[in-house]
Design a binder for these strands. Sequence first.
DNA 1: CACCAGGGTGGTT
DNA 2: AACCACCATGGT
Length: 217
Amino acid sequence: MIRFNEVYETLNAKPGPQHWWPADDQFEVIVGAMLVQRTTWRNVELAIQRLKDAGMLQIEVLHRERVAAIQSRIKSAGFFRIKAARLKNLAAFIVGQGGITALSKRPTSELRSLLLQIDGVGPETADAILLYAFARPVVVVDAYLRRLASRLTASDEAVPDASLREWVATTIKGVSRLNAFHALVVEHGKSQCKKRPRCAQCKINALCQTGRAALDA
DNA sequence: CACCAGGGTGGTT
DNA sequence: AACCACCATGGT
């Protein structure tokens, strides 16, 4: 297995963005999680700000708002038609569940299956919401982590998600560490070479060099 | 001009 | 179960 604590330390040694998922409240985190799908955070920030300016970034308001009005505010985040419909539906779901406070009282596994019922919330978004909005100790498995893990294996083999979850969970303990770990993985992933199968050609290869030494037999 | 970004869904083999 | 097209704007 891969010892991700060494990966963590390696990535953490490099200076990077500090407070990673800035938001005023839990709902803003959840909205951001939906908007950031297949989009840059930069474009999501603009959309969130435009929602705020219109006073729409509140559950009850968004729940009542016209889809067309939501669309016009989030265009910068891309896929604005489906995302607008999903945001409105998301607000309706939260209202139907008795609000964020009520949801916060649910056990993690139960909350996860609830989130997965929401249209537009898949495994990754659900885990990001659990970790960043509800502060649950959850491993977020995304494309960056998969690629990183495959590069830490001897011949760039794909690592099953279940193994990734298990390995990260056993080496990265606690909400704050899991929080920082996912942030580090994403930040590193952005600058990591995607085309080469090996890390030798990458601009940032320090991680993969040390990372390979972190492999168990 | 092509390619990509902190995915998910629905349809086809 | 493994692909596939699609969603759409903004940056490089």
